[in-house]
């Protein structure tokens, strides 16, 4: 019996961490995150330079991208990317008007091709990010949250993929900063329960918004990592519809 008591005492904190907090709190935390990343407290639109540094077994490769995004209530979310370097991808344009409406512009052939959403699983320019990872952080649509732990600085949520969702990660452990209500770390698990990737994020206050300025994505299986840094961030410029169009991604230069 004393042994059983010991076991119960040992297990109590774990059980408490695992699920004693009400689900409503987890939903509230997730809502706060989404408000900051894509909701009322997020910029209506954003333009930035992105520098991607891929570290792969001692080899370092750098990609530069110019990005525009729009996130307004009255219009569909949209993103446009122009690849600036290296030379073999320079000029390629990417346009996402909705989850099932994406285009890629290939300057070598002056052709815009529609790409299916299944390509979102693909690696983004040979990095450790997939196109999906580069997308919005609308977790609540596809995941059920549960509060696992909390301390003075952070919340830790467990997100379990909803039935019928086609998101690539079955489970996400999401660490959220209490001071900014933005994610600081994500552990991404596959359907078999294996840890696939870890994302460590730094957000910075730009004007009145918390903007994700740096994210390091580590691929646990491949032992590679990619750092994505955002520079020259501009927000709320009222970017015109024309930017999120096939016509724009075909234009040379910026």
């Amino acid at each position: 019996m004393p042994d059983l008591k010991k076991i119960i005492l040992l297990l109590l904190p774990i059980l408490w961490l695992a699920g004693s907090l009400p689900a409503a709190d987890a939903a509230a935390v997730l809502k706060a995150v989404e408000e900051n990343t894509m909701g009322a407290h997020a910029p209506r639109d954003m333009e930035a330079d992105m520098v991607m540094t891929i570290q792969d077994k001692g080899q370092v490769r750098i990609r530069e991208i110019h990005a525009w995004s729009r996130n307004t209530k009255d219009k569909d979310d949209a993103r446009a990317l122009k690849f600036l370097s290296p030379a073999d991808v320079k000029g390629i344009g990417f346009l996402a008007l909705a989850e099932d409406s994406m285009y890629i512009y290939l300057p070598e052939f002056h052709r815009t091709r529609r790409i299916a959403s299944s390509n979102m699983k693909d690696s983004f320019m040979g990095s450790d990010f997939s196109y999906e990872d580069m997308g919005t952080t609308a977790f609540s649509k596809s995941y059920d949250p549960r509060l696992l732990a909390e301390n003075a600085q952070e919340w830790q949520l467990e997100l379990l993929r909803k039935k019928g969702s086609n998101k690539p990660y079955a489970r996400i452990l999401l660490t959220v900063s209490k001071s900014s209500s933005t994610p600081t770390r994500m552990e991404l698990f596959d359907a078999a329960g294996n840890l696939e990737k870890v994302a460590e994020q730094n957000s910075q206050l730009t004007g009145k918004y918390w903007i994700m300025a740096r994210i390091k994505m580590s691929n646990i299986k491949k032992r590679t990592s990619t750092v994505l840094e955002m520079k020259n961030i501009k927000v709320d410029q009222d970017l015109q519809d024309e930017i999120f169009s096939e016509r724009f991604i075909k234009k040379s230069g910026l």
Binding site: D100, R114, I115, A116, S117, S118, N119, N166
Partner: peptide, 11 residues
């Protein structure tokens, strides 16, 4: 035409 159905691209 070009589109997609359940993630499968078609044209």
């Amino acid at each position: 035409c070009a589109g997609e159905f359940k993630g499968i691209g078609f044209w």
